[in-house]
Each structure stands twice: as C-alpha cells, then as structure tokens.
Design a protein around this nucleic acid. Sequence first.
DNA 1: CACAGATAGTTGATGATCTGAAGTAGTTGG
DNA 2: CCAACTACTTCAGATCATCAACTATCTGTG
Lengths: 140, 140
Amino acid sequence: MPISKRLRGRQDAELVGLVFALTDALQHRFETVAAEHGLTRQQATLLGHLEEPQPMSALAGTLHRVASNVTGLVDRLERQGLVERRRASEDRRVILIAATDAGRELYGRFETALYRADLPFAALSDEESDALRALLRALV
Amino acid sequence: MPISKRLRGRQDAELVGLVFALTDALQHRFETVAAEHGLTRQQATLLGHLEEPQPMSALAGTLHRVASNVTGLVDRLERQGLVERRRASEDRRVILIAATDAGRELYGRFETALYRADLPFAALSDEESDALRALLRALV
DNA sequence: CACAGATAGTTGATGATCTGAAGTAGTTGG
DNA sequence: CCAACTACTTCAGATCATCAACTATCTGTG
C-alpha cells in the first residue's frame, strides 16, 4: 500500500473524528438550549422547519421519520399551542402544520439562544471563518 | 452598528447553519448505519466509549445522561451479549461496563461501515482536507 | 360515472429512551 | 461506630419511534 494512500486514510479518520466530536458537542448544546425553552430535541427540530406551513408527509421526509411518529410530535406541540393543523383546500387529505404566533415567538427565542456568541466559531479569525465556510459549502 | 460587525454576524449565521446541516446529515447516517447493525443511536454511541471498561458514572457523564438512563441502556446491551458488568475490586460500589468480544466485533463492523468512503469528505482534495482538519482542531 | 388502487394521515400496540424520586449497598471521615 | 456521601438500581411517567391496521380522499382506467 502506497504511503500517500495510508496517510490520506489516517488523516481522513482524524477528520471524521473531529467532525463527529463537533457534532456531539453541537447536539448536546442543541438539546440543552431546547430543554431550557421547554422543548425536546425533536420538537425544536420540527418547529425549525415551519417557516412555511408543511404537510405532515413533507415533515416526515425531512425528519427521516415515519408519518405516525410525526403525528405524535405534532400532537404534543399542538397541545402546547405552538403549532396548528390546517386542512389543505386543494387536496383535502393533506394536513398542513403551521407554527402559531406563540410557536414562532418561542422558536425565535430558542434560535437566538442557540446561536449566541459562545459558539466555538467565535474563536475563529475572519479569514479562518471564511475558509471554513467555503469548505463546508462543498460538503453540505 | 459597524458594517464589518453586521457582515461577520451574517457570515457567522451561515457558518452555523452549514455546521448544523452537516451535523444533521451525519446524525442521520450514524442512525441508519447503527440500525443496519441492530443498534440504536444511543447503544452505538455507548459501545463506542468502551475501548476501556468504564464505570456507569463515567458513561453517564460522557453521554450527558443521568445514571438511571445508563442503567437501562446497559441492561439492553447486556441482554444482547454486547457488554458485561464487572464489580470493581477497589470500590465495590462501582460497576465497570466492558464490551464483550461480540460487542467489540459488532462495533468494529459498525465503525467500518460508518467511515466508509462514501462520506462527503472524500470529495475534498488533500489540501482542502488538511485545511479543514486544521480549522476543526481549533474548534473541538 | 364507477370503482379499484393509491395516497395522507391517524390510531393503537409495543419497545426504546429519558428523567426524577426513592431505595439498596458500599465507603469515608469524624 | 455511624452519619453523610457515593454508585448504582428500581419504578413511575413522559416522549420518541416503528409497524400494522384503519379512515378519508383522490386518481386513473374502463
């Protein structure tokens, strides 16, 4: 096996390890901030996809969950008054999930807290921040 | 508000958005590969921390979960024969969780599948990969 | 138009995850 | 010795997640 190949493999492993470490830290932060706002990870994630009203099936696709799971998530958010169900007029089988004013307001506060300056990215210089953004755009 | 400040703020938001998008994608991949190996996300994560046997309390700390939660996770992994409980000799209150041979073998296969070449990082050139690694080291 | 088949969503059963409160067993310091 | 502390478990209750079976609606084909 050529050395360059071995090296790239080892470096890739480090890269993946770094990204998973960052992922873990951000997931934990997301959960903590969500809990501080009375939301679970799943509820906050769902609310974050309601800039526009969405059919149940679209949410199920985005969240990588089966429809009956989303039914339960929406039930609990609806009980808290954060989202509402609207029957779509074009296709009356479809139910559109829309954030209520309370839901939008709560999500806004959550997002502000989540993105606050104590995120690790604040440690980067402008140049580093630019470079990282460019690299991540290629990955996502 | 100075323009540079505003710009940096907007760019930071994009950066955070990119990282969260990457996080989502990796989380989903992690879950999918874990399921293909008969593991939940939590079980695979726990197994990944058992290179050395660990006390319950250490696992609870690492996973950011309360002790009683880890008790349940270990129960289910033990039932599958993937980990075992060992009473620590120095302090007999402590229970060390150790991966069994079957657990190590399964986790190895899981990890191999998880890190397979279809991770998005393969798209990066050597130079980009180096740059990204350097940036992430500063963050983690 | 009729109606079989497909699609959107819900319901109910079951199991995993997660927490908090209360309990057991072992340890430690005064 | 023993009160306070620590490590872990147990139990009750909530959320999350899936599957199978169901209702309601829509669509295409004859």
